[in-house]
């Protein structure tokens, strides 16, 4: 249930205002646009612009700051931002080094970002797009480009942002973002749906005592519905799926992220993570800086997702590179 709001129609605007008021030391409002940007954009570096519907905090505005995203375009709850807003945010931060758009693969986002990209290209800007497609539940192997983007957003944004921050050119930032996406896999499980501001009923429901495997962050269907099980079996379910979908040339070093979807508590996540960790070690994998946190949420949805980023010598330093954002800081 979303309880705190005034007029639901003003929800996005008010959340942006409050967010910028709280984190003004790190971010600023993009003038005349639904978005936030770093306080001091650097025109000689590639601008990494992320975005999508609101309702997924820390995605997307929580990842704006030095070392990560340059700006985030924010749509209404679960609704893509308009092409006009993407364009305005791009104009506010784009410099000579060009722009990378990165966001989850949803048709509304693709449509609006693509229209903005065409407009910017017509004006002579160099803009590239890397879609995040990490959710293995949304399309089978062999159709990876059809998959939707969920918590893996974070890894793609982080590595693209780190690449841009160290001064890589646009070709290189794009290549590394594509590579990160190609090596990221996520799978989630949901226990209860979420309710939009002003709505009395949840957007979708999960029957009591059941869990939905692979349910999307807006209620899109997943793979199957099953009986609720003990945490250790849920850990195995998640890992069985992810370990059956290991990208080519994966190696044995993985970054692991257990992400809470909104109303599954940290304590529960740690209980689950204990078995995730143990199993990954038992598989002979080397674990790189696990994250157990809320990284990409879905309002007050109950559930979690597990993401693996298969690292190599090129990607690991980008994951470790310093960044300072409202939701995620290293170094």
């Amino acid at each position: 249930m979303t309880r705190l709001y005034n007029d639901p129609a003003d929800f996005r605007e008010e959340l942006i205002e409050g967010f910028v008021a709280a984190y003004g030391r790190l971010v600023q409002r993009v003038p005349n646009a639904s978005g936030v940007m770093v306080r001091a954009p650097q025109p000689d570096k590639v601008a990494v612009i992320i975005g999508g519907g609101s309702g997924h905090y820390p995605a997307f505005c929580g990842y704006v700051g030095p070392g990560l995203a340059t700006a985030a375009v924010m749509g209404n709850i679960f609704s893509a931002p308009s092409a006009e807003q993407v364009y305005r945010v791009t104009k506010a931060v784009a410099g000579a080094a060009g722009v990378l758009y990165s966001y989850g693969n949803y048709s509304g986002d693709v449509l609006n970002f693509d229209m903005a990209q065409m407009r910017c290209e017509d004006e002579g800007m160099d803009v590239r797009t890397v879609l995040v497609t990490d959710d293995v539940a949304s399309a089978p192997r062999g159709q990876e480009e059809e998959r939707r983007g969920i918590a893996g957003d974070f890894y793609v944004f982080k590595l693209a942002g780190a690449s841009a921050a160290r001064g890589d050119n646009l070709d290189e930032v794009e290549r590394l973002a594509l590579k990160t996406n190609a090596r990221t896999r996520s799978f989630g499980v949901a226990f209860a749906g979420c309710t939009l501001p002003g709505q009395r009923a949840p957007l979708f429901t999960v029957d009591a005592g059941q869990m939905e495997l692979g349910l999307g962050v807006h209620g899109e269907p997943g793979i199957s519905t099953g009986e609720m099980r003990p945490a250790r079996e849920v850990a195995d379910l998640l890992l069985d799926t992810l370990l059956a979908d290991v990208p080519e040339g994966a190696g044995s070093r993985v970054a692991v992220m257990l992400n809470g979807l909104g109303s599954t508590k940290y304590e529960e996540l740690f209980v689950l993570y204990k078995d995730v960790h143990r199993r990954l070690l038992a598989e002979g994998l080397e674990l790189h800086d696990p994250i157990v946190n809320e990284m990409v949420t879905s309002l007050d949805m109950a559930g979690c997702s597990l993401s693996l980023l298969w690292l190599d010598d090129e990607l690991a330093p980008l994951l470790d590179a310093p960044c300072t954002t409202p939701a995620y800081t290293i170094g």
Binding site: G75, S79, A80, S107, N112
Partner: peptide, 13 residues
């Protein structure tokens, strides 16, 4: 243009 900008999402575009 005003419709698209205010509506957002796929249908707005």
């Amino acid at each position: 243009a005003a419709f698209s900008d205010a509506a957002g999402g796929a249908s707005g575009a």
